[in-house]
Design a protein around this nucleic acid. Structure first.
Lengths: 327, 327
DNA sequence: GTCGAGATTGTGAACGCTAACATTCTAGGT
DNA sequence: ACCTAGAATGTTAGCGTTCACAATCTCGAC
């Protein structure tokens, strides 16, 4: 900066003013400074800047299971929205949810001087651990939150599940079976709750419930069991990956979808449309979620105390894996 | 730091020494300092540190198309490997490959004081643009590189394609059709080259070539055309997503896979095993790629000039979408 | 006891920037 | 010509570290 100042024949402070877009610089001086900057290929040192201003323009994000569709979409979209708002976003992926590994993740982010932390981990355990951590910066929760919750943005999982189940019930199915996600995930619990409440609302008993772990393999195993049960005519599967595995098992056992059994997934992964049959599923608008998360973070950073945001409503995408039951 | 020094009754320099694990501190003093640190909840300011040391312990990565399987796997694995090596990694996603947007991406990273930049964009245009940029830090290319290339790590796409095509030829197919990726991607070109060379090697003419853009939709369109051509008994599709679309089209047209037509994909996405029929495909070890990229970066940072690494060999995963042709 | 080498600790400056205040221009009014 | 308010610019200090060197301890050998 001193060099630039010398080259332009001004003081370093004037250079600083130009860089920060101050009004108090004569146009002619500004031009001269800018020219010097260009000529010298000068770039301002952000470490020094951060040191004195204490503003890093960086927000941190903690994620997990980045191989799964949802988490990775959220990570990308937060990153993107952050950039657009002039923030860098640092991502750290955790592999388990012990107090220790979360503490480490938070510390790593704090060391990077993040101004806020976005937690996109829908694991119950993780959630509690993080909450209990002392946090010198605002903390925003993404994913698996409930309505009205402060400092949190999310998609209404329960509503999504209800959409799926009601669609099936409307088609004339007596009840709907459910393949759940792992119950440690709050989303899994919420989708399950939606499934139950949709049945209750119609005063019918829900179909059988099978446990899964999001993986196609676990869906496959659930499918094998469902194929044996002549009573099941419709299944709501907690994500598209498992739905795929399940349909594979049904195929393998010679059960027709949707002729004998209707299937609804959750996520609307890009492949869903090209499964055979094309999968009816629930679409979650992840990119909007990311934007909302950043927006909320910014509000908190702006001094608003414990802002909250509305849940995003998912939408049902009806394709070919669902039909009325045959009698 | 001054506070800690005061609390421990030493000078700030001694605190600094403790923090940096210097040997020259009496055990007793060290203990006292550590206690003071813990008590005051002190954490060292990295901005100040960076300012004086000029080492950011951060490497930058430029990616694109993070929704696609390959790019996102690579991003995650570089990030991960970087962390394990004690580096933070900043990711910036570019949306197009103009000189301007790449310049911006690089600038953004340089502003974050990255010590090296990893470019994981397999777009020809992007590649050239980046190469032409003045770079004050080492630049490592990941993806779509060729053998022996300096400062680059990659997976041998051509070998992978040859594996796929030879498998089909070995089964007795006369020749193999190919659905390509977009030709702006160097991977797409390499897979295409592998497809051609496998045919040449057997002294047979390759089957028809259809253009795709990685999307299942484009695979679907290619599938529609292939379904009409009675001459095609085997297709090598440049990625699994398009293979899915293609198989969907074949189903729709009543063509049996693999009875009438065999299909091989590329990527081995987690869903591939659960397609119906389960997809034969080529597995790329992305996590290894990420590790190699970081390793190479570290070597360059360590002063080695233009280090190079071997290409990673992909593996064929044979499942149910391929079979011998009927006569 | 005294000296000196090595161990341990301390001191001051510097990294590149911005904040706060001080100084110098400039132009309009008298 | 002279004053003054506001515009434009400059000066100094300090952000929290580490580096280079200086100062002080400690302990064994004489």
């Amino acid at each position: 900066m001193t060099d630039v100042a010398a080259a332009a024949g001004v003081s370093h402070q004037t250079v600083s003013r130009v860089l920060n877009g101050s009004e108090l610089v004569k146009d002619e001086t500004r031009t001269r400074v800018l020219a010097a900057i260009a000529e010298l290929g000068y770039r301002r040192n952000n470490a020094a800047r951060l040191l004195v201003t204490n503003r890093s323009h960086r927000i941190g994000m903690i994620s997990a299971h980045l191989v799964l569709h949802g988490p990775s979409m959220i990570a990308v979209s937060v990153q993107d929205a952050g950039h657009k708002a002039g923030y860098d976003v640092s991502l750290v992926a955790v592999e388990d949810f012990t107090a220790r590994s979360l503490r480490e993740a938070v510390d790593r982010l704090l060391d990077e001087a993040v101004e806020a932390i976005v937690v996109a981990v829908a694991h119950r355990e993780a959630r509690e651990q993080v909450r209990s951590l002392e946090m010198p910066v605002p903390l925003v929760i993404v994913q698996g939150v409930s309505d009205g919750q402060r400092m949190a943005v999310g998609i209404d999982q329960e509503a999504g599940a209800r959409l799926a189940v009601e669609h099936l019930l409307d088609l004339g199915h007596r009840h709907v079976a459910h393949v759940t996600g792992p119950q440690e995930w709050v989303e899994a619990g919420q989708r399950r709750a939606g499934w139950r409440s949709a049945h209750e609302h119609r005063h019918v008993l829900p179909g059988p419930e099978l446990g899964g772990d999001w993986s196609p393999q676990s869906g496959y195993e659930a499918g094998l069991r469902i194929a044996e049960d002549p009573d099941v005519t419709a299944v709501f599967v907690a994500n598209d990956g498992m739905a795929m595995g399940l349909m594979y098992a049904l195929h393998e056992k010679g059960r027709d979808v949707p002729g004998e059994i209707s299937v609804v997934g959750f996520d609307d992964v890009p492949e869903a449309r090209f499964l055979w049959p094309a999968l009816t599923t629930v679409d979650q608008e992840f990119s909007l979620l990311g934007r909302r998360a950043v927006e909320l973070t910014l509000r908190a950073l702006g001094g608003e105390v414990d802002p909250s945001a509305e849940l995003i409503r998912p939408a049902l995408v009806v394709r070919d894996s669902t039909a009325a039951p045959r009698h």
